[in-house]
Every structure is written in C-alpha cells, then in structure tokens.
C-alpha cells in the first residue's frame, strides 16, 4: 500500500470530527443568547399559585431587587436546588418569586408542601408562555431582577451556594449601591 492511501482514514476522521464539532457548538444550550439581560422583564398576566383568585403581572416583581426562579415538579434538579433557595430566604431579605413552569398546579402545591416553599409567591405558567418569553430552555433557571424590573443576570441550572455567593451576591451588592446612590 502506498503512503498516501494510509492517510485516508485520518482524513475521513478529520471530516467526522469537523461535523461533530460544528453540530456540537450548534446544540450547546449554554450558548443560548442572553438578550434578555438588561431588558425589562416580559409582560405577563397570570394567576398566583398560592391564591388562584389573585392575578399577577410584571408590576408585582418590581420595587426590590429579587430572584425569579423557574421550577417545576417534574424537574429533578429543582429538588436539589430547593434547600439553597430556602437558605437564601432564611438568611437574606431578598424576595424570591417562583415561576411554576409547564406544570400541574395541584402537583405544584403538593410539592411545595413537601419540600417547603422559599417563594414569596408563585406565578402559574401553565402553558409555558412566560417561560418562552424569558427564553427558558428547562428548569431550574434563575434570573436576578432589579428594582425597576430589569433582568440583570441569568443562571441556567441549579443555583449552588458558590453560585449565589460568587455570581449573584456581587451583582446584588452593586445593584443596591446603585439604588442607594441614585
């Protein structure tokens, strides 16, 4: 066999890697655009989970720097994230608003009773429309929203203690200073 034909397998493999690499970068959910950053929280008019007679709108999450957490009962990682949210609730005065995403409200109420609720209130996003407006890919996802209702941070996946302290806290501090300064 001559030398050049021995390079064929390598060439074929090169093409394969190229396809895989391109396909891979296309599929990466973490490369999702975060155009929502520094945009106002999308408008919505949805029911409250805790009080079905109450209608919530984007105005309800304005006023204070807050966390908005997208969760669902079908989401395994939400169970894991829950204790950290409870800790934030306990140890800070940061309001946490939940978006119960693509879920069955009755199940969600049971879930909250079982695992304890870290939320000030929950927005029922039954058909996932708000989640889509937010560009949510799955749950959990957490947004940091400033007092004017502008999204400042987006976190995909579980918020761990490190995430909160290294990513959220500095942002929150600078936001509150901004608020105090102005």
């Amino acid at each position: 066999m001559n030398r050049r034909s021995l390079l064929i397998p390598l060439g074929v493999f090169g093409v394969l890697v190229l396809v895989l690499a391109v396909g891979f970068t296309l599929k990466d959910p973490h490369l999702l655009p975060s155009q929502m950053i520094n945009k106002p929280f999308p408008a919505f008019t949805l029911k409250s989970l805790e009080n079905p007679n109450r209608t919530l709108t984007e105005a309800d999450i304005k006023g204070k720097v807050s966390l908005v957490n997208v969760w669902a009962t079908w989401c395994a990682n939400c169970v894991i994230e829950n204790p950290e949210l409870l800790r934030i609730r306990r140890e800070t005065d940061l309001p946490i608003y939940g978006i119960n995403y693509n879920d069955d409200p009755a199940e969600a109420i049971k879930w909250l009773a079982h695992y304890k609720s870290p939320y000030d209130f929950n927005i029922v996003d039954h058909d996932g429309r708000l989640g889509i407006d937010l560009g949510v890919y799955g749950a959990p996802e957490t947004f940091l929203v400033d007092a004017n209702g502008v999204i400042r941070l987006r976190h995909v996946g579980i918020v761990s203690r490190e995430d909160f302290e290294d990513k959220f806290l500095p942002a929150i501090r600078s936001l509150t200073q901004e608020g105090a300064g102005s």
């Binding site: 959910p29 655009p33 155009q35 945009k39 999308p42 889509i132 407006d133 560009g135």
Partner: peptide, 14 residues
C-alpha cells in the same frame, strides 16, 4: 417557539 418570538431576533442562531 424561539423563532416565533420577535423580541429575540438572535434566537435563530442557537
């Protein structure tokens, strides 16, 4: 869903 959403013109890239 992302494509249908006009507020996010970049969404198609993903």
């Amino acid at each position: 869903l992302a494509d249908a959403h006009k507020d996010k013109p970049q969404a198609g890239k993903t």
